[in-house]
Amino acid sequence: MYVEMHDETGQVSKDMQEDIVKLLGTAAQKLNLSSEKEMMITFVDNEKIQEINLYYRDKDAPTDVVSLEYKPEEISFDEDIDFEGFDASELMNEFDSYIGELYISVDKAHEQAEEYGHSFEREMGFLAVHGFLHINGYDHYTPEEEKEMFGLQEEILTAYGLKR
């Protein structure tokens, strides 16, 4: 799996970024995802994540992670447009490899690591896996969904060695 990363804060070391990529590789294997899948992670501060949270979720407050799942089935082409022999299915196959993007607040990760009494690395890993599961269709709106998602999340983090 390919993970593109952008650190707008300058606070996430290359080593930590590499660890997150490996962790998400473990998560992708657990979900039996194709190695062709791609995603993006952008590390931001509380101010930026609040803007993103307001724009995408209509919530005017900073949060720890915003997950934007990519759903290729929601894209359609106007059948009246002549692509002059262009095969749109080829483009859709390429889009199909992109699963989504995460925005992680480094500020919130620091705050929550302290609040929960574990390392910053563990919190960053938790947020990455949590967001990753969201962009792969998992949620926690009901008790059943929460049990499944949080159980899987803990299983992945423990398998990688990021225990509480």
Rank of each mutant, 00 (worst) to 15 (best):
residue 17 Q to K: 15
residue 137 G to K: 06
residue 161 G to S: 05
residue 125 G to E: 06
residue 129 V to I: 03
residue 138 Y to D: 05
residue 48 K to S: 07
residue 85 G to I: 08
residue 36 E to Y: 08
residue 23 L to A: 04
residue 134 H to W: 06
residue 73 E to F: 10
residue 123 E to Y: 02
residue 58 D to I: 09
residue 72 P to K: 04
residue 10 G to N: 07
residue 46 N to R: 00
residue 153 Q to S: 14
residue 91 L to N: 07
residue 70 Y to L: 09
residue 117 G to K: 05
residue 115 E to M: 14
residue 102 L to I: 08
residue 97 S to N: 14
residue 151 G to S: 14
residue 126 F to W: 07
residue 163 K to Y: 08
residue 83 F to Y: 15
residue 143 P to R: 04
residue 140 H to N: 11
residue 6 H to G: 13
residue 131 G to K: 02
residue 148 E to A: 12
residue 117 G to V: 00
residue 97 S to L: 11
residue 115 E to K: 15
residue 125 G to C: 04
residue 163 K to R: 14
residue 95 F to N: 13
residue 48 K to C: 06
residue 149 M to F: 11
residue 118 H to D: 08
residue 129 V to Q: 04
residue 51 E to L: 13
residue 36 E to G: 10
residue 76 S to K: 05
residue 131 G to P: 01
residue 31 L to H: 00
residue 155 E to Y: 04
residue 76 S to M: 10
residue 69 E to F: 08
residue 123 E to H: 01
residue 30 K to L: 09
residue 142 T to N: 00
residue 73 E to C: 07
residue 128 A to I: 10
residue 36 E to D: 15
residue 113 A to R: 00
residue 57 R to I: 11
residue 51 E to Q: 14
residue 109 A to T: 04
residue 68 L to T: 01
residue 82 D to R: 00
residue 39 M to H: 04
residue 54 L to C: 05
residue 96 D to M: 06
residue 10 G to R: 07
residue 145 E to K: 15
residue 8 E to R: 15
residue 53 N to E: 06
residue 88 A to G: 08
residue 153 Q to D: 10
residue 7 D to T: 12
residue 12 V to G: 00
residue 94 E to L: 13
residue 23 L to M: 05
residue 59 K to N: 14
residue 38 E to A: 10
residue 73 E to Y: 09
residue 28 A to K: 03
residue 64 D to A: 13
residue 136 N to A: 08
residue 31 L to V: 05
residue 66 V to A: 02
residue 107 D to C: 00
residue 59 K to R: 14
residue 155 E to R: 02
residue 51 E to N: 10
residue 146 E to V: 01
residue 114 E to D: 13
residue 154 E to C: 06
residue 149 M to R: 11
residue 158 T to L: 07
residue 5 M to R: 10
residue 134 H to E: 00
residue 18 E to N: 12
residue 114 E to Y: 05
residue 103 Y to W: 09
residue 46 N to I: 02
residue 99 I to E: 06
residue 2 Y to N: 15
residue 82 D to G: 01
residue 110 H to A: 08
residue 30 K to A: 12
residue 69 E to V: 07
residue 84 E to F: 13
residue 63 T to S: 09
residue 103 Y to T: 01
residue 7 D to P: 06
residue 116 Y to D: 14
residue 5 M to Q: 15
residue 145 E to L: 12
residue 158 T to Y: 12
residue 99 I to K: 03
residue 66 V to P: 02
residue 101 E to Y: 06
residue 101 E to S: 13
residue 51 E to Y: 11
residue 39 M to E: 09
residue 79 E to R: 12
